[in-house]
């Protein structure tokens, strides 16, 4: 469980557009790494390269190395499907599968990977829902459609679905931006729990959230619209928020721009 990720000289392109330039960073196992920065700085793009999700966009490509415990996930012969089984993802908008019940949503990954054993699926469903702090709320409506839950519950359902396939790393792309403060709190508590087992990378627009949940924070910025985004600095969250090395980071955090 819980693997380390190293990015070495990573450049990301969408066709001819150079989206992100020269990123070097290390994601530490069993900790939360937050990416912050103004819109368009490429933090979500970097996140999506970590499980080869950006490949789904036509023309997107990556240069440099992204190492998962030392193995380059972009090596020729590495299967994107296998990478994604190891590195799960939770998206900005809750997106349960509309045709499936709550239970089927949670075990969708396992089921579609070919697990048939109903007893095991039920166990995984319960464990994952407990892990996502949702079990108590939905245990009486496991057979109801997943789309019938509230937004915050749907997002926790998606987290349960992501951890049901037992990934080593969990990527979260602004997981709380569509949620109310109470649901946000529930998810933040959950992140604190999950980091005991998983390596977590979270992109957030909310700096207080980054300060609350993360152990290290990376600040991304871009010089101007149309220019590639880059990593300004990455350090312990406490240091970034109290005494950052770069002036740009301090300006951003103190609200002077962005």
């Amino acid at each position: 469980m819980a693997k380390r990720i190293d990015l070495k000289d990573v450049d990301i392109y969408y066709g001819a557009f150079h989206a992100v330039q020269n990123v070097n960073l290390t994601v530490i196992p069993r900790s939360v790494t937050a990416f912050i920065g103004p819109s368009g700085c490429g933090k979500s793009t970097v996140l999506r390269t970590l499980n080869r999700m950006h490949e789904e966009i036509a023309g997107a490509r990556v240069e440099g190395e992204i190492l998962l415990d030392g193995e380059n996930i972009y090596d020729r012969g590495t299967d994107a499907v296998a990478v994604r089984r190891t590195i799960g993802m939770v998206f900005q908008m809750p997106n349960p599968f509309p045709t499936m019940s709550v239970r089927d949503n949670v075990v969708a990954g396992l089921k579609l990977q070919g697990v048939r054993d109903k007893k095991k699926l039920d166990e995984v469903a319960e464990a994952s829902l407990r892990g996502a702090n949702l079990w108590k709320e939905v245990k009486d409506r496991l057979d109801k459609p997943g789309g019938g839950l509230s937004g915050g519950q749907q997002q926790r359902l998606c987290i349960a679905r992501a951890i049901a396939v037992q990934p080593d790393v969990l990527l979260m792309d602004e997981p709380c931006s569509a949620l109310d403060p109470i649901s946000t709190l529930a998810i933040e508590d959950l992140i604190a729990d999950l980091k005991k087992q998983y390596t977590i990378v979270i992109v957030t627009h909310n700096m207080q959230q980054a300060a609350r949940v993360s152990d290290q924070t990376g600040f991304f910025n871009l010089e101007a619209t149309g220019k590639p985004g880059h990593l300004v600095e990455i350090d312990d969250t406490e240091k970034i928020f109290s005494n950052p090395t770069e002036q740009a980071t301090e300006d951003y955090i103190s609200g002077r721009f962005g």
Binding site: E56, R84, L112, V165
Partner: peptide, 18 residues
């Protein structure tokens, strides 16, 4: 919606099965 496809890919489900 594409986000349904993406969340299936993110679970390690192959494209044809998605």
């Amino acid at each position: 919606p594409d986000r349904l496809r993406e969340s299936a890919y993110a679970l390690g489900i192959p494209k044809w099965k998605t």
